[in-house]
């Protein structure tokens, strides 16, 4: 085993390397490619935070996109320049219509509001188990969608809010991604984290041993929602438009796909799944507009990326139900011992 100092050093070096690479990319690559790189970062953060609830805590939630929506809308309304706000959202109440926050506070407030929503919805709903919980959180997603569509004064309904300032850039995204991974990593390696995993393994037994089920689940749920809210806000300020459809069932689904394909109860799995499942559909998107390969023109295949995604997901669930990475975790020891380590070994 490597000592802790050495590991910390390696991690630091890796981070520096990551940001140097991102810096170079930023200079060399086209805006289109940078956008994909940024989407990868946002999706990693979203999936890792989803894994905290769905994977580590065993609270199978389908509401992640709902929290993204909350964060995105709150941040969008707060950060919208006053001039634009007066035109786009003239019906806003005065206290909201006259504020314009800078990006960071907007993000954080967006995340906090999402977390508060999680607290309100989670308190009753987290008592449910298994797929009932999943369905209830899906119900929450539908409710959020309807509310956003109906609250015209705040959200412009189905038209959505456009013309957001493109605050989100590579640094915002990847610093956020690193913070998310760090926080989730700290949580799962704390006493809290072990309580969570006890719940996942056997909630009845964990409760019998004195683990306060609802408290643990609620914490995971709220932390997940906080990061989802910020992720949603970053996403909105990258694309510069938010509509109710940006955070629909499809988005929850694609996050769940990433999470399941990578491995639900692993941070590494989240990173792998999010990266893979952001890049592959991006390639497939070309098929939807029609391309010419080697002289053969392929007509536009609408829906093909979703078709491929869902087929891949079904195959992964049948063949490799724990995902590509499983519940293993990346560790520096990997390079020394030439093998993947489980979490427990890493702690020792």
């Amino acid at each position: 085993m490597m000592n802790l100092q050495k590991k910390k050093l390696y991690t630091l070096l890796a981070l520096v390397a990551l940001f140097v690479i991102l810096f170079i990319c930023n200079m060399l690559l086209s805006p289109y490619h940078m956008r994909i790189i940024n989407l990868v970062g946002i999706n990693i953060a979203l999936v890792v935070s989803l894994n905290l609830t769905n994977g580590f805590c065993g609270v199978f939630s389908l509401g992640h996109a709902g929290f993204m929506a909350v964060g995105a809308y709150v941040a969008a309304i707060l950060s919208l320049p006053l001039v634009k706000k007066a035109i786009i959202l003239p019906e806003l109440p005065k206290w909201l219509g006259s504020v314009e926050l800078s990006f960071l506070p907007s993000l954080i407030i967006g995340g906090l509001v999402a977390a508060i929503c999680a607290l309100i919805i989670g308190y009753p709903v987290l008592r449910l188990r298994g797929h009932y919980l999943a369905v209830a959180t899906l119900g929450f997603l539908v409710v959020i969608q309807v509310v956003i569509t109906q609250l015209q004064d705040f959200t412009r309904g189905a038209r959505g809010i456009n013309g957001l300032t493109q605050y989100t850039n590579t640094w915002w995204v990847w610093i956020f991604t690193c913070i998310t991974i760090y926080v989730v990593w700290r949580i799962i390696n704390s006493a809290y984290g072990r309580g969570m995993m006890a719940i996942r393994e056997d909630d009845l037994a964990a409760e019998a041993m004195g683990v306060n089920l609802t408290k643990y689940r609620l914490l995971a749920f709220c932390v997940g929602a906080f990061f989802a809210g910020i992720g949603g806000a970053l996403w909105a300020h990258l694309i510069t438009v938010v509509t109710p459809l940006s955070f629909s069932y499809d988005r929850t689904f694609s996050l769940v796909v990433m999470s399941v394909i990578g491995g639900m109860s692993s941070i590494t799995g989240g990173v792998v799944g999010a990266s893979l499942m952001t890049l592959v559909p991006e390639l497939l998107r070309n098929l939807e507009v029609g391309i010419t390969v080697g002289g053969i023109s392929i007509p536009p295949l609408y829906g093909i990326s979703q078709i491929v995604l869902s087929v891949v997901l079904i195959i992964v669930i049948i063949v490799r139900p724990k995902g590509i990475v499983g519940s293993r975790e990346f560790s520096w020891n990997l390079f020394k011992k030439k093998k993947w380590n489980t979490m427990n070994q890493m702690e020792n």
């Binding site: 689904f253 997901l313 079904i314 669930i317 049948i318």
Partner: peptide, 10 residues
């Protein structure tokens, strides 16, 4: 459940 969602989208 996930499979059924995937099938639905498919």
């Amino acid at each position: 459940l996930i499979t059924s969602i995937a099938l639905s989208i498919l």
